[in-house]
Design a binder for these strands. Structure first.
Lengths: 128, 128
DNA sequence: TTACCTGCAAACCATTTGCAGATCC
DNA sequence: GGATCTGCAAATGGTTTGCAGGTAA
């Protein structure tokens, strides 16, 4: 198994993700990090994002709109996608609700449900 | 606005999707339809799948594993993805639960939630 | 010193698209 | 006849990867 070494590029990606509420694409992140490290390559961004996802430090959101988005908050939580402007927001839902939903789904299912991932759709406050 | 004409290829795709419980990829569908129409092209499969999705006759599942899957049941329902064997199954959940979940999410949210899409994860009965 | 990491550019691969001819109505 | 559809093959676009040189420990 390989050990992880420090890299200023990765640190910069983490810092950006932990401090934004946007849910940026790899390319968004690439553009942002380039302000500080103009030589960084898109390949490096992808390699680091995949590493951080594998380590559980960030999560990847596959919304199905063509490109993945990334979220610096790895704790289970819900997302809302506006069908008008495509903006993604975090939803503030009690953690109890997560287990509740898993329990609803487990009833009458012969496998073992460990978790779920949900996207809510509709109009955001600005588009409503 | 353009009208839709009959095509035996599209009819064949619909028939296959309405009668399977697998959640096939575009390529799976291509392979299957080729048994009956050996000359069909992958482009035609994609064009028809997109048309059927736009018309609401089937749904597309973006699981984030690299390629989309298609489901001949367009009514709202839930899916379970086995983290061991990647098999996708339909879950049998009361329709009430859907509205219930939308209501939980709507509490304290200033936009308008119209629906949601959920994937449950865990081990299926065979892998457990 | 020796992993691991980076920039670069090419490769990959699911999906889309342009075109000329076929098919439906 | 005219709009829609098809097969084919090339293009697209997000993501991955091979390589040679750089950097952390």
């Amino acid at each position: 198994m390989s050990t992880t070494k420090y890299s200023r590029q990765r640190e910069s990606i983490k810092e950006y993700l932990y401090n934004t509420k946007e849910h940026p694409t790899a390319d968004n992140i690439y553009m942002k990090i380039r302000e500080k490290y103009p030589n960084i390559s898109l390949g490096t961004v992808y390699r680091n994002l995949n590493l951080l996802v594998a380590q559980g430090e960030i999560i990847k959101l596959s919304t199905g709109d063509g490109c993945d988005r990334f979220d610096g908050n790895p704790l289970p939580h819900y997302h809302f996608i506006c069908t008008e402007c495509s903006r993604i927001q975090d939803l503030d839902i009690a953690p109890d609700a997560l287990n509740h939903i898993n329990r609803i789904a487990s009833a009458g299912f012969d496998g073992e449900i460990k978790g779920h991932s949900t996207f809510f759709y509709g109009k955001c406050s600005k588009c409503k």
